[in-house]
């Protein structure tokens, strides 16, 4: 069991910055994210795409922004719990009990949901019976590449994951790469390698084709693919790997007893608290009149939510507003105060 001043759900830019805002007023935070890395949508969806509307930073990438935020919160030594999803939230006397998919339990007076548009899950094949083969011939990630050794593998997709795994698995298995159009959207360099491997006979490419059906009784033994003119081809295969990117689902947040509006959480704009005391929502996941889904708005929302967390975490301490430029206590927390 971990006791903390605030649990932050979501390690995207807004979740990271709220850790800073909590940290400078002396509150400790634990951060939980379903992804295996820090950065949220910035890292998962657009690590290399430039962002032009972060105040005072004319241009940066999703990856650069994440790096800088991590640097900025370093003094507060936050704990990250990655690859973990918050499954349940329940009342525990005056505090909240947070349980994760890895069975960790947190006790906290404050929960800050900075969950973006929910948790990322792999986008799946849409064909019939696909569920019954999931993890038994149909996969959306590679846990251990040796599982595919000496097997016939059909890889679907045109992004980096599809290309990278086609290249990697072509060394140990019989790979066919299938994509719905002739262009690949993954890195140019990877696309060139894939084409070179095809020329050398080390893998096959089938474009523009999409999956049409999966065949087999207990395990996958063949698939059919279809092109835009309706031409169908059958391919004998042992495994099918789909890399269609990630889909965003609200997930278990929907069951925490919070008011919801479509897939967002209504908050008040005074402190970004939800309908439950001590549960806040900031960033893309919250909604209020005039809400803008911008990173910069999320930063502001976090600054206000953090102050409200202080009052709940330390009800007997008077909150005093201070500037980082002049406050000795903030500078001590940041580790920048020179010893005198």
């Amino acid at each position: 069991m971990i006791k903390t001043d605030a649990v932050v759900v979501g390690a995207g830019p807004v979740g990271l910055f709220v850790v800073h805002q909590l940290g400078i007023i002396g509150l400790k935070a634990e951060i939980i994210d379903n992804l295996d890395k820090i950065g949220g949508q910035c890292i998962e969806l657009y690590p290399d795409k430039p962002i032009y509307d972060i105040p005072a930073i004319p241009e940066c990438t999703g990856e650069g922004l994440t790096k800088n935020l991590l640097e900025q919160i370093k003094p507060f030594k936050p704990n990250f719990h990655l690859n973990e999803r918050v499954e349940a939230v329940s009342q525990n006397k005056n505090e909240w009990k947070v349980e994760t998919s890895k069975k960790k339990i947190f006790i906290t007076p404050n929960i800050i949901i900075a969950g973006g548009v929910g948790s990322f899950e792999p986008r799946k094949f849409f064909v019939k019976n696909v569920e019954k083969f999931e993890n038994n011939g149909v996969f959306y990630s590679v846990k251990n590449k040796n599982d595919f050794k000496n097997k016939k593998v059909c890889i679907f997709g045109g992004g980096d994951s599809a290309l990278d795994w086609a290249i990697e698995l072509s060394k140990i298995s019989d790979v066919i790469l299938v994509h719905r159009r002739n262009e690949f959207r993954g890195a140019e360099h990877s696309a060139e390698i894939v084409k070179k491997l095809e020329k050398e006979g080390k893998l096959k490419i089938k474009t523009p084709f999409q999956i049409n059906s999966i065949e087999g009784e207990k395990k996958v033994n063949a698939i059919t693919i279809k092109n835009e003119d309706g031409k169908i081809e059958k391919i004998k295969t042992d495994c099918v790997l789909g890399f269609f990117g990630l889909i965003m689902k609200l997930g278990p947040i929907a069951e925490w007893g919070l008011n919801l509006e479509k897939k967002t959480i209504p908050v008040n704009t005074e402190n970004f608290q939800t309908n439950k005391e001590g549960i806040f929502a900031i960033g893309d996941i919250c909604t209020y009149p005039g809400k803008l889904k911008l990173i910069l708005s999320g930063f502001h929302e976090g600054a206000l939510a953090a102050r409200a967390c202080f009052k709940i975490a330390k009800p007997n301490v008077a909150y005093r507003f201070e500037y980082t430029t002049t406050s000795k206590s903030i500078q001590e927390r940041l580790g920048v105060k020179k010893g005198d």
Binding site: R123, F126, G157, G158, G159, H179, R180, R181, E183, R185, Q210, E228, F244, G245, I247
Partner: peptide, 16 residues
């Protein structure tokens, strides 16, 4: 545009 093409890869049953 290519950004839209890329996103369409993720759509349900895209066609021409």
């Amino acid at each position: 545009e290519s950004a839209e093409q890329d996103m369409l890869d993720m759509a349900y049953e895209p066609n021409k």
